[in-house]
Amino acid sequence: MKYSFVLAALAALADAALRFGCSTVSIQRLDPVVEPGNSPSAHLHQIVGGNAFAAEMKGDIGEQGTCTTCVFSEDFSNYWTAVLFFKHENGTYKRVPIMANDALPAGISGGMTIYYTQQDFNSNGNKFIRAFPPGFRMTVGSPTQGADGLTKHKGLRFTCLDNKSTRFPEIDDFPKKPCKGGIMTEHHFPACWNGKDLDSPDHQAHMYDTQPTGFAAGAACPASHPVRMPQLAYETLWDTAQFANMWPKDGSNPFVFSYGNQSGHAYGTHADYMFGWKGDSLQKAMNSSCMFNACENGKPLKSQSVAAMNACQAKKVVNDNLDGWLTALPGMT
Rank of each mutant, 00 (worst) to 15 (best):
V71Q: 14
S26I: 06
W193C: 07
P32K: 12
P97T: 08
K284Q: 14
T159N: 03
A217R: 12
Q231H: 14
R19K: 14
S77W: 01
S288H: 00
H225F: 06
D202H: 02
A219L: 07
A103Q: 11
I183N: 03
L44K: 01
T81E: 10
R19E: 15
G37C: 12
Y116W: 14
F136W: 11
A307L: 11
S165N: 13
N310P: 11
K316Y: 03
H203P: 01
D323L: 09
L198C: 00
W277M: 11
F275L: 10
G251D: 10
E235V: 03
T81M: 09
N122E: 14
M291R: 09
L156A: 01
T166Y: 02
A328H: 13
A271R: 08
Q46V: 10
S142L: 08
F85C: 11
K127S: 15
V71W: 08
F158K: 00
P230H: 07
F76E: 01
P248F: 05
N38I: 02
S305M: 02
R167W: 10
S73T: 13
M332P: 01
G135V: 07
G49C: 05
T185V: 08
H43D: 13
A219N: 13
W238N: 13
Q119D: 11
E186N: 14
A328P: 00
P40E: 03
M1V: 12
N78W: 07
W80H: 10
V317R: 06
A216S: 14
C221W: 09
S41C: 12
V48Q: 11
S123P: 00
S23P: 08
L156I: 09
E56Q: 15
A103Y: 12
N321Q: 13
D60K: 08
G182R: 06
A266F: 10
S41L: 05
H188V: 13
Y273M: 05
F85R: 00
K2R: 12
N253F: 01
G141C: 01
S123K: 13
D15G: 13
Q262C: 01
R157E: 11
Q204T: 12
F158C: 02
L18P: 06
P178H: 10
P40Q: 04
A285Y: 05
S77E: 00
N90P: 02
G331T: 05
I114V: 14
N51H: 03
A307H: 04
G59Q: 09
N126E: 14
E186K: 12
S258I: 04
P105Y: 07
E296K: 09
A244Q: 11
K196N: 04
I183G: 04
Y259T: 06
A11M: 10
N101P: 02
F189A: 03
C290E: 07
A241T: 00
F189L: 09
S123G: 03
A285N: 05
F72W: 02
